[in-house]
Design a protein around this nucleic acid. Structure first.
Lengths: 343, 343
DNA sequence: CTGAAAGCGCTTACAG
DNA sequence: CTGAAAGCGCTTACAG
């Protein structure tokens, strides 16, 4: 009941002054130097157990936590890892990636600073201001930034999609391979004419293009006709239009590879609306293995990208860079075909 | 081609020295004071246009960005807003929330630091170290932390689920109301016995409990029997078991309210496996309106929580706290019933 | 074993 | 109009 209905904190005042190492020093009767040595377990110093205990107790009692800003200023390097997250709706895989990375880095007393790249501030301002230990990108950085960051001693771990041969230290899942896997399964099941249900979201082009390229490549390799393509919105009507378009003409598609599971779900809904049986009249395959995939009617065959494997690989890449170790080998078990009933 | 196959940056060296305001001062032939005045547009100073131009050009040429650490140390307050994200899989709504908040705060030169609370570091260490401008929580904070942060002059914006009456400044969507809405729709469609398909994920209890409570409350209010409850995993088998259990006995449920859309999808799959027609044999209603909901067979009736409205409310809450303004009014258009075919 | 002092880069009274 | 100086909190040679 602190008078006059003032909202606590609403005044924005300076608040209680910060507890500093000087306070801890005073409280425990030693110098700031000793406090620093004790609290950081600095090697090469000999300090009595008794003194250490006194310092630690004083720090606890006072609720002392060293100022990150002061440390950063002193060392020229912050305890932050900057993650530059792209503009597109990436969903659960990205969530898992950031999650795992955050946990892994917390064990090294590093914090993750997430920056959504659609913010208009130039990237350079951010990394120059923050001096992070490492910057993690989920798309390639402009060359100027990458060079600048490396020069400033910042580790750079960037996803480069489908660079061949892969650059060591780059974190990437081959999206081409996703498309190849879809096509292989469909062709293996006897289909000769394949349709492709792509996305209408332009922000996803970076993924969608190589996936479609993978399907194309595989068809060409096997001497099959080039896949016809139809963009699909996430509605049953749009899925229905796609099914019609792809099954029309002289060479109707008997199977449809979709950009991802959500698009596949739309195609499934479209097929249902058309009174078609899946997979007998038309087979459908997705990508991602989202929860809804196994609950669909019929259960959706799909290519799963293991979020767990990717997450581990990413955090290994970052910690390796941080330690100056060579980057880890690319995992080969990221992509997995999940065969259910739709294809 | 920088010799000997060294990975660039892999050495972890100190790198090129930082460009400081002293460099800009030297380059433009003025003092650091003037540089600071010009670059910060400090009011109450009179500096010639010519000087300003020279300083700005030098800063650009040198690629100067002020050290966040030094600024923070000086002012005692960083440009960070700390978001404490909970342990549970929150999905697209949380994604939208953080996204929107990040963009909104970027306009004020504030950056979002995301902390996943499952990291084991005590929260107090983090906010003491970082001295953020504000801390945003998606669950309530321990009292000691909340008091400590306020004392330190940090704005606290915390989600407090279903606190009644709501505390001003708290950001929350009434989960009770979600359950009430589900029950009302089902009862309005003539159902008298309602089953509840809950989640098996214990981390979601904070949401699941009040939602179920809302359904219960509504049933009681309308003089209907208490809903029977069955926990559902996200598989067709588990959905099937739930459908069987909830429809068994003397008072079989004719309608099932599900914890969320994914659980509802599992129930739908279960009903399909049982050869039941939806909604004739059993009606189903979800929560969230995920993409898969409108593509389901049949399309899922659900309660949507507008991510956009919530996102705006959250960022308004934070900016109001930052400015010392009173918190915004709770939006009343967050929850919306989306009637499709399943109920 | 322990302390006095310098310096990281910034902003801001204060003095010209 | 502009500059010299102090100080934010920390760590670390350096000197006892």
């Amino acid at each position: 009941m602190s008078g006059a209905g003032t909202l606590p904190g609403a005044v924005g005042g300076a608040g209680v002054p910060r507890v500093t190492s000087a306070d801890v020093a005073r409280e425990s009767g030693v110098s700031r130097t000793t406090v620093s040595y004790v609290l950081n377990d600095t090697s090469g110093t000999v300090i009595s157990e008794e003194t250490r205990r006194r310092v630690r107790e004083a720090a606890d009692r006072l609720g002392y936590a060293p100022s990150a800003a002061a440390r950063t200023l002193r060392s020229g390097r912050s305890d932050l890892v900057l993650c530059v997250v792209p503009d597109w709706p990436v969903g659960p895989v990205m969530e898992a990636l950031l999650d795992h990375l955050t946990r892994e880095l917390a064990a090294r007393d590093l914090s993750v600073l997430v920056h959504h790249s659609r913010g208009q501030r130039p990237l350079a301002d951010l990394w120059r201001a923050v001096t992070p230990r490492a910057v993690v990108g989920f798309t390639a950085f402009p060359d100027a930034d990458e060079v600048g960051m490396r020069r400033a001693g910042i580790q750079v771990v960037a996803t480069v999609l489908d660079e061949e041969p892969r650059r060591p230290g780059a974190f990437a899942v081959g999206q081409l391979q996703v498309g190849r896997l879809q096509a292989q399964h469909l062709v293996g099941a006897g289909h000769r004419v394949i349709g492709y249900a792509s996305t209408t979201d332009p922000r996803l082009a970076e993924f969608a293009d190589p996936r479609l390229a993978g399907v194309r490549e595989e068809c060409r390799r096997l001497g099959l006709p080039d896949p016809r393509v139809h963009a699909v919105e996430l509605t049953a009507e749009s899925g229905r239009a796609a099914v019609r378009a792809l099954r029309a003409g002289l060479e109707p598609a008997s199977a449809i590879a979709a950009y991802n599971d959500e698009v596949a779900l739309a195609v499934l809904a479209g097929a249902r609306a058309e009174g078609l049986r899946v997979p007998d009249d038309v087979a459908v395959i997705g990508v991602d293995d989202v929860t809804a995939a196994r609950l669909a009617a019929p259960p959706l065959t799909t290519v799963s990208q293991s979020a767990a494997v990717q997450a581990r690989f990413l955090s290994d890449s970052v910690t390796a860079a941080l330690d100056g170790r060579p980057p880890p080998a690319h995992p080969d078990d990221v992509l997995r075909l999940v065969v259910r009933e739709s294809a």
